[in-house]
């Protein structure tokens, strides 16, 4: 089956600043694809191009087999989205906003009974009062308005830009359940986030973006292959450490030895560990956070993207 989203060497210039600098992204049907990166890395710009709100300066983007810029209105019938910075009309109530956005997406001939049922259910699970005016909603409640509007009408593709920002942990769970539900229907999801635990829990595959390029893409397991696993254990007083093959950065502090091995070479050190005994052994695969820091840590923190988009 063809990919739901494909971009090839996507570029976007804002004046002199390059928001995207040759971005290659692929989202397969039925998968939840994490789109990770710090603020200003180009996540929202990519999403705006995929939604046909802005046009790529160079490169190619295909969404559901169409051109997101030329076929925007037609494609959007099959896409649900939540923008990165949710604004609502101050003088429209939440209920009116949800109804309006649903009507704009589905047209008049759609299944209204199903929509109403779904809307009521979502209002209930997200605990949202639809009668409040837009200006009276807190950030979290504005986010809920956008989420209910996105989930109330079925779609083949969900493009969500940091959808849980402002939600409390209980609501994050509700969101995760809804995401699981739409995945059951076979829909694909592009989930932009900088909350690593969220991506780690939900996503089948992920792409890490930095300064307008995808620097890493794959499943969490695949990404872990690129990094090292940390091994640590207690060293009894006076014991002599054997030599471990493939061990890197071995240190002994406060009676504990620590070293790292390539994640696909963990098995090679196990025999030596067994011989030594290795009391209090801990083998820790790298967390997504460590993967992330590998790309952004150190000098990465000193590279805030200039565009801010």
């Amino acid at each position: 089956m063809d990919a739901v989203i494909t971009t090839e060497s996507l570029r976007k210039q804002y004046g002199r600043a390059a928001a995207l600098d040759g971005l290659d992204l692929e989202v397969a049907p039925g998968e939840i694809h994490g789109f990770l990166g710090p603020n200003g890395a180009g996540k929202s710009t990519t999403i705006r191009i995929l939604l046909g709100l802005v046009r790529a300066s160079a490169g190619r983007a295909t969404v559901l087999g169409g051109d997101p810029w030329k076929d925007a209105a037609r494609l959007h019938r099959r896409i649900a989205s939540v923008p990165g910075d949710v604004s609502v009309w101050p003088n429209l109530s939440g209920g009116e906003t949800i109804d309006l956005l649903a009507r704009l997406r589905q047209g008049r001939d759609s299944d209204r009974v199903a929509y109403r049922r779904e809307r009521e259910r979502l209002l209930e699970v997200f605990e949202l009062d639809p009668r409040k005016k837009g200006r009276a909603y807190s950030k979290g409640n504005r986010q809920k308005v956008a989420l209910v509007a996105a989930f109330a009408v079925p779609a083949e593709l969900y493009i969500l830009d940091e959808p849980t920002s402002g939600l409390d942990p209980l609501m994050e769970l509700v969101f995760q359940r809804e995401l699981a539900r739409v995945r059951e229907t076979g829909a694909a999801v592009l989930l932009s986030s900088h909350i690593l635990s969220e991506v780690e829990q939900l996503c089948d595959r992920m792409s890490i973006i930095r300064s307008g390029r995808v620097v890493e893409t794959g499943t969490l397991a695949e990404l872990r292959h690129l990094t090292r696993t940390e091994v640590s254990f207690e060293v009894p007083h006076g014991a002599v450490l054997p030599a471990f093959p493939d061990a890197h950065d071995l240190v002994v502090t406060q009676g504990r030895a620590r070293f790292t091995v390539d994640s696909d070479a963990v098995a090679a050190v196990l025999p030596e560990l067994a011989r030594f005994g290795a009391p209090g052994l801990r083998v820790e695969p790298p967390s997504l956070e460590e993967l992330f820091l590998r790309h952004y840590g150190g000098d990465g923190a000193g590279h805030p993207d200039s565009s801010g988009r």
Binding site: L51, A73, H76, I79, S81, P83, D85, L104, R105
Partner: peptide, 17 residues
């Protein structure tokens, strides 16, 4: 400017429309 055009254009509404 306020960001409320974005959800409309992200729905099935063309720019000109």
């Amino acid at each position: 400017a306020r960001g409320t055009a974005e959800p409309v254009l992200s729905a099935s509404v063309g720019r000109l429309h």
